[in-house]
Write a protein that binds this DNA or RNA. Structure first.
Lengths: 136, 136
DNA sequence: ATTCGTTATGCTTTTCTATATATTACGCAA
DNA sequence: TTGCGTAATATATAGAAAAGCATAACGAAT
């Protein structure tokens, strides 16, 4: 990471950063979230839950549970898997899964815009303590 | 472990719900979040970290850690505590703490508005499965 | 029939967080 | 001086989530 130095560091305090997370809920609770959507993208890319999980440093068990959770909550599944056969099988992203990805990223982009706007609204009143790391 | 589950009503609607959480970050990570702000309010109400924690079913240890984390990251502390004395001591919310509460709730209200607007934008395309009646 | 890589599934272990418990310090008041 | 209720701090326990591990089923290719 490259730190941009604009002026000499004086006694000015940091401006706090806004952060957030968003989800789409279904009948069992979480239905779509950042991690799940990335997982869907990786499944599309690799055609395999195993490879998708590995590419995210996630256990296969966890990845499978997430896929199963999504499939249980949709009328039409996002991922269709086959066992056995050429290459041992694999998994495929359905058209609905594709749309889900688009839907969530749209939501996510809107959210980032929201955070940026809120950031701009922050009053100068709130003074945070500086850190050593901020000096480099 | 009981097999009794909350009876699910047969919903005919399948519109997904949007959910989210927001935080304000400081030099050590989380600085302000929903739980921390409620804690500040309770400290103001009870004048005691112990009573505030109890009112939230939160361990004193955890509450103290949160207060300490906020105080470490602000230039001027949000909570001032005194040990010993009449009643054994207590804790008091500072003016900056008061402003922090207002600031966060404003952020939080804006976020709720955002979620409502996003909800309205949701396409009818995404079909979720209806709440599953117990088949056991 | 054997091999192969993946899905699917159960069980165990690790990890992280918060709770629970215990102890000391504190200072006013009786 | 003693008692009281709180702050402050250390250590231990519990619960949940994820990872790790083991194993069976599967079906095309060889």
């Amino acid at each position: 990471m490259h730190a941009v130095k604009k002026k000499a560091l004086g006694k000015t305090s940091n401006s706090p950063a806004l952060r957030g997370r968003i989800w789409i809920d279904g009948s069992e609770g979480t239905f779509l979230g950042h991690g799940r959507v990335v997982l869907l993208e990786r499944i599309r890319e690799y055609g395999s839950i195993t490879k998708a999980a590995k590419s995210m440093a996630m256990s296969y068990r966890h990845a499978w549970d997430l896929v199963d959770s999504m499939n249980r909550q949709t009328k039409k599944p996002f991922v269709e898997a086959v066992t056995g056969g050429k290459g041992g099988g694999g998994a495929r992203l359905t058209e609905d899964g594709e749309l889900a990805i688009l839907l969530f990223w749209k939501f996510s982009r809107d959210f980032q815009v929201f955070l940026k706007r809120e950031q701009a609204k922050l009053p100068r009143g709130l003074r945070l303590r500086k850190t050593v790391a901020d000096s480099e």
